[in-house]
Design a protein around this nucleic acid. Structure first.
Length: 264
DNA sequence: ATGGTTGGGGTCCAA
């Protein structure tokens, strides 16, 4: 049997619930992880998802900003969340499904100025990454079957951005962030499940700004959304994909879903 | 160097 998991920064789940339903109908992953749901839990459209078979949920939202959710067709046997940086800003949940612990993260975007002295949002982003790294080092072992997904708001590789040279000083691709993301990746010996199938020399994006006249033609994308797995799951990797055409759907998010399939 | 667009909540902030 196989396990398919998708991650998607939906940029308001209430505004885009029809888009979510279309994606689930077409792709039918076993688990969908969302970020930037922008919905308090009491207003989350759970009924529409239950109708499609996603009856097991772990959601954590707030008014207006952030918010993460795990929606599953398979039972959730354990769940929880962490508050890195102590802000209660709804950037992490986890759920155990089929004996695999799935972590869903929304890393702070970090503002515009890549200097923690001048920009508190960038300082928050760096602190969040440091605390995430420390948490996995202290609380989990790399031998545990785990999946980490989410909008990590960092494009680590040269070909995860449209122009490595031009983006070296742009928040999401600066060396200090990429270095810290590498430390998070080392914390549980995480393996990039998407680059597993796509050579590092090939351009690969999951996000295109709203601020381009024609996102498809200019193609100035970045790979901000990721799926990582721990080593015990690596031999079980079957496929990975980034759903680029969804960026062109009506009322599109600026991010598209990323999907990985494992045999379990 | 600048500005471009979108969402949410409310006449501006975050991305």
């Amino acid at each position: 049997m196989s396990l398919t998991i998708s991650t998607w920064n939906i940029n308001s789940v209430r505004l885009r619930i029809e888009t979510v339903k279309r994606f689930l109908a077409e792709t039918s992953p076993d688990v969908l992880c969302l970020q930037e749901t922008k919905s308090p839990d009491e207003f989350f459209p759970l009924d529409a998802l239950a109708e499609l078979g996603y009856r097991h949920t772990m959601i954590r939202g707030m008014k207006g900003y952030n918010g993460v959710a795990i929606l599953s067709r398979l039972p959730i046997t354990a769940s929880g969340s962490e508050d890195w940086c102590g802000r209660q800003d709804c950037r992490h949940v986890f759920a155990e499904i089929n004996g695999i612990e799935i972590h869903n993260l929304y890393v702070p975007a970090g503002g515009d100025i890549p200097d923690p002295e001048l920009n508190p949002k960038f300082a928050h982003k760096l602190d969040f990454l440091k605390q995430t790294e420390a948490w996995f080092r202290a609380q989990r072992t790399a031998s545990k079957p785990m999946i980490l997904v989410g909008d990590l708001n960092i494009a680590p590789l040269e070909h995860d951005v449209w122009s490595h040279k031009q983006l070296l000083t742009v928040v999401s691709h600066t060396p200090v962030e990429v270095d810290l993301l590498g430390r998070v990746q080392a914390s549980s010996d995480w393996h990039d499940a998407v680059r597993h199938f796509v050579p590092a020399t090939e351009k690969l994006y999951s996000w295109w700004s709203y601020r381009n006249r024609d996102w498809d033609a200019s193609d100035r994308g970045r790979r901000l959304d990721h799926i990582w797995i721990t080593q015990p799951l690596v031999p079980h990797l079957k496929a990975a994909s980034i759903h680029r055409p969804i960026r062109g759907w009506e009322v599109a998010s600026d991010h598209v879903p990323v999907t990985v399939t494992l045999d379990v």
